[in-house]
C-alpha cells in the first residue's frame, strides 16, 4: 500500500500542472484549430466547414508581415545579445557583493507594465520630445529627423522590452563558470581575449541559447511595440492577428494566422536547436 503510494506520489504531485496545461493550453489550442477551419461571420454565426483553403489564403495575404515579424525578432534578439551579454558578464565577474542589487536594477523597469513602458518611449522619442527636440534646436539633427514610426524604433523597443530575458539566463550560466578554469586559461598563455573566446564564451553558450529562445519567440509575436512605436510600414503579424480578432471579428482568419505563426516559430526553434546542437549545449552544462 505504502509502496504504491510512494510510486504514485510524483504523478499526483504533477497532476495539478497537467490539469492546468490541459484546460488552459491543450483545449484552447484544439479550439483554435477548430475555429480556423470554420466559415461565416459574427452576425450570421460560424459553421464548421473544414475550410482548409484558409491557410494558403492567409499566407499569401500576410507573408510580408510574417517575414517582417521574423526579421524584427531576429534583429531584436541580436541587439539583446549585443547589449545583454556584456551586462551579464560584468555582473557575474565584477559584480562583487552587489550582484543581487545589479540584477534587481536590471529587472526594476519591468515592474511597470509593458504598455506603459512602451508609451514612455513614445513620449521620450517624440519628434519634438525631450531627446530629439534639443538636438534639433542646436542643429545636431535636421529638422525632419525622426525615430518614431521607423523600423529602428520598433526593433529597439522590442529589444528593450525583452532584454532581461537575455541577461538573466546568460548571467545564470556565467555565474556558474569556475573562476579557476579561467585562471587555468591565463596560466596556459591565453590573453584575456583568448581566454574569453576559447573558455568563457563556449561555457556560456547554454545561457545564450536559452536567452535567444526567450527573446526571439515573444518579440516575433509582439504587437505592442509595432502599434505604439511603429508606423504603417512597421505592421507586424501580431498586429494583424489583433485587428482580425478584435476589429474585424474575423475569428477563423485570426486563428489561422495564429497557427501559421506558431508553426513557423516551432520549426524555427527546432532547426535552431538542431543546428547549434542541444546535446553539445547540454553536455557543457553537465561538465
Amino acid at each position: 500500500m505504502t509502496r504504491l503510494r510512494e510510486k504514485a506520489a510524483p504523478y499526483l504531485l504533477a497532476l495539478p500542472a497537467w490539469i492546468w496545461l490541459g484546460i488552459f493550453f491543450v483545449v484552447p489550442i484544439i479550439g483554435l484549430l477548430w475555429m480556423s477551419l470554420m466559415t461565416g461571420n459574427i452576425i450570421t454565426g460560424f459553421q464548421q466547414t473544414f475550410n482548409v483553403a484558409i491557410y494558403p489564403e492567409v499566407i499569401s495575404a500576410y507573408w510580408e508581415q510574417i517575414l517582417r515579424s521574423l526579421g524584427y525578432g531576429v534583429s531584436a534578439t541580436l541587439l539583446c545579445i549585443a547589449v545583454g551579454y556584456p551586462v551579464a558578464y560584468w555582473i557575474a565577474f565584477h559584480g562583487g557583493a552587489h550582484k543581487t542589487t545589479y540584477l534587481l536594477l536590471v529587472l526594476l523597469p519591468f515592474f511597470v507594465t509593458q504598455v506603459l513602458r512602451t508609451i514612455s518611449w513614445k513620449f521620450l522619442l517624440a519628434d519634438d520630445g525631450v531627446v530629439l527636440g534639443p538636438l534639433k534646436a542646436v542643429g545636431l539633427l535636421p529638422e525632419d529627423a525622426r525615430v518614431l514610426s521607423t523600423t529602428l524604433a520598433v526593433v529597439v523597443g522590442l529589444a528593450y522590452n525583452f532584454l532581461p530575458f537575455m541577461i538573466l539566463p546568460i548571467y545564470a550560466v556565467l555565474e556558474q563558470v569556475d573562476h579557476r578554469v579561467v585562471e587555468a586559461a591565463y596560466d596556459l598563455y591565453a590573453s584575456r581575449f583568448h581566454a574569453f573566446v576559447h573558455v568563457v564564451l563556449p561555457l556560456s553558450l547554454p545561457g545564450v541559447f536559452a536567452g535567444v529562445l526567450l527573446v526571439f519567440v515573444p518579440s516575433s509575436a509582439d504587437y505592442v511595440n509595432a502599434s505604439v512605436l511603429g508606423g504603417t510600414n512597421n505592421t507586424m503579424i501580431g498586429n494583424i492577428i489583433q485587428s482580425q480578432y478584435l476589429v474585424n471579428n474575423a475569428y477563423p482568419t485570426a486563428a489561422a494566422i495564429t497557427f501559421v505563426l506558431m508553426t513557423i516559430l516551432l520549426v524555427g526553434i527546432f532547426s535552431y536547436a538542431k543546428a547549434l546542437g542541444t546535446e553539445r549545449v547540454m553536455e557543457v552544462q553537465a561538465g
Binding site: R180, V181, E183, A184, L188, Y189, P202, L203, G287
Partner: peptide, 17 residues
C-alpha cells in the same frame, strides 16, 4: 600568461567543453 611556469590546480580546473 607571459610567465614560463604552469600550474596544476587543486580542483584540476580542466576545460569542461
Amino acid at each position: 600568461n607571459r610567465r614560463d611556469v604552469n600550474m596544476v590546480f587543486q580542483s584540476y580546473a580542466l576545460f569542461p567543453h
